[in-house]
Design a protein around this nucleic acid. Structure first.
Lengths: 141, 141
DNA sequence: TTATAATAAGACTAAATCAGTCCAATTAAG
DNA sequence: CTTAATTGGACTGATTTAGTCTTATTATAA
């Protein structure tokens, strides 16, 4: 059970931008060097995040990327979800057709709830929360 | 983000056994047919669960498998963990060495907590809970 | 008005993992 | 001593992952 490396890197990149001045654009080259994320891979990650509206990008000389919103208005879920293609914990939750096994459905009810619980945490935690040290997040301390 | 198919099947198989009479042994052939889990794959799954102490197995004629304990004393975690080899949500949580990126460590604190929260649900839910319909599990309803 | 510094899009690839199979060995019951 | 079962481990094909490469496209500045 793990997130894709893209999602992992995506968080690192967004966190990096969130800690920098918001009124500049940052080239992939710069971000790649600072975070040690392979540049070409990072490019693909940003393309995804641009499409999903978390990141703004600017072509041409002096171009680069910046956060589309301030860190307090970006949730972890908004960064992770577009970078994690397959989000169902078990097969039943990924496939459209309903499962033939009744015993597995007991399991899938449980997985569905557990997964929802997980997503609720991602939805209710912002990038700003993470930077501030995560005192109050994850629903318990 | 998904569990391995082995873990998914493992739950189905344990659930199947939990709904059957406890004083018998069940052959893999029988379980495989009832649950539609490929027999050879199921065999490997049970080998793992035997090692971890959730399942008892008996060789030879009249052999087969059975639950090592009653369903109310087996947690979901006990079934899933041995079948999920890599349990760290992100690289930082899987690797031993500490990460060089300070920004990612903010993220890894968050992932660590979120993951713990997830495991606590698995630890506090028994197979019996699932069979009874999961009214009270997943920490919220 | 062209050279340059950037991202965009998408094809491509190597390696790892996953899901599943096969087979020879072992064990116990009848 | 034959048969019905699991054990252990090697093997395999397919898929996914992580990452790269290449060819546009775009914007700025000289």
């Amino acid at each position: 059970m793990k997130l894709t490396q893209g999602a992992d890197y995506g968080m690192a990149a967004v966190l990096y931008l969130s800690q920098k001045s918001e009124d500049r654009r940052y080239s992939l080259d710069e971000i790649s060097r600072a975070t040690e994320i392979p540049e070409e891979f990072l490019r693909k990650i940003f393309q995804t995040l641009v499409k999903s509206g978390v990141i703004n990008s600017f072509k041409g000389r002096g171009g680069g990327v910046s956060l589309a919103r301030s860190a307090k208005d970006i949730t972890v879920a908004e960064v992770i979800k577009p970078l994690e293609e397959e989000m169902g914990l078990v097969r039943c939750l990924r496939e459209k057709e309903d499962c033939p096994r009744s015993s597995e459905c007991m399991a899938s009810n449980f997985w569905r709830k557990t997964q929802q619980n997980f997503f609720e945490i991602l939805n209710s935690t912002t990038i700003k929360d993470l930077i501030e040290g995560g005192k109050q997040n994850a629903r318990k301390d």
